[in-house]
Amino acid sequence: MKTLWLWTFALVAILMTSCQKDDDSYSVGKFWVGFGIIDKSGPNTFTVLMDDGSVIYPVAGHYNGDWFDDDSRVLVNYTIVDDKKVDDTNKEYYVKINSVRKILMKGIIDITEAIEDSIGNNPIIVRDAWMSSNQLLNMELRYFGNSEVHFINLVKQPGELTAADQPIELELRHNKNGDREDVLFNAFVSFDLSAIMIEGQDSVSFIVRSVDYQGNESTYEGTYKYVIAAE
């Protein structure tokens, strides 16, 4: 199993909020925060397709295209400098990047005896969960730790899925790697749900289960709608 860092950071009250345009101009004192996907057009240049459907074009600020691979999941804090193309069907902006952070994004793993130990079964707190417009399952998590790398995975039982299996049972698993539980950390993770696609359907219902530090089960029920690219 590929080892991935789970980036952690304190939440801010303005997460995923937006500011309004005043007097047909943008203020350098305003900023937006949201999730998106990196689209690299060159070694050091990229755009970000935001979850709200807008596209931002960095022209200034603190960033380096070398920091990210194509299709990386990111959380971006940015200031709009000017419109690039804004109409009824397009929302494209030139922006100054104030900060950008890579977010853990991964798929669903089939759980087997061979990987049961590495997947772990430690408690995890799910503060929020939602499906974004790009059909990623996003979760805001909390867990206790200290200095070790923690692993987060979304797992299912192996085998072919059928319509009768709905809602598909998924489990959020946490491996603290023997870390001490001294500090409460916050983190975000996004999951690609394509592993639960069922042939002949355009959507699948699912349920995610997890267990917190008091032994209480948390559940999230959702629908994964297949994203079909236009020809």
Rank of each mutant, 00 (worst) to 15 (best):
N122A: 08
V126F: 00
I124R: 00
D88F: 05
P158D: 04
W5R: 11
R101K: 06
D165N: 14
N90T: 10
D69E: 11
F185Q: 13
L75H: 08
G65H: 01
G34V: 08
D83N: 13
N146Y: 12
M139F: 15
I111L: 02
S54V: 01
L193Q: 03
I111S: 03
R180A: 09
Y220P: 07
Q166Y: 03
E92I: 08
N138H: 05
A129G: 01
M16L: 14
D83E: 06
G200H: 12
T219E: 15
G53H: 09
Y224T: 04
L4M: 15
I108A: 02
V95Q: 01
K21Q: 15
R127N: 12
L6C: 12
I196C: 01
N138T: 08
N177D: 07
L6D: 13
Q201M: 08
I97E: 07
Y78K: 00
L49S: 14
L15S: 09
D179V: 04
V126I: 07
S41C: 09
K30C: 15
Y78A: 00
I109T: 12
A229S: 14
L4A: 15
M105D: 00
L6Q: 14
I198D: 01
D212E: 06
E92L: 00
W32M: 09
V95R: 00
L184R: 07
F46I: 01
P158H: 11
Q166S: 08
L6F: 07
A187E: 06
V208N: 09
W130H: 13
G120W: 02
D83W: 08
A195S: 06
V208T: 11
L137Q: 07
E148V: 11
G29C: 05
D39K: 13
I198C: 02
M16G: 13
F191T: 04
G120K: 00
V28M: 10
V28W: 09
E231C: 03
L193T: 06
D212Q: 00
L136P: 00
Y57Q: 03
I56G: 05
I111P: 03
W130G: 07
V189M: 04
Y94T: 05
G107A: 02
K40M: 04
A114D: 14
E160A: 08
M16K: 14
A13F: 14
V28G: 07
E199F: 09
M131K: 00
L6Y: 10
V149S: 13
Q135R: 05
P58G: 01
S99Y: 11
P123T: 11
Y94D: 04
I108P: 04
K176D: 03
G145C: 07
K84A: 05
D202Q: 09
T17Y: 03
V204T: 13
N138Y: 04
G65D: 02
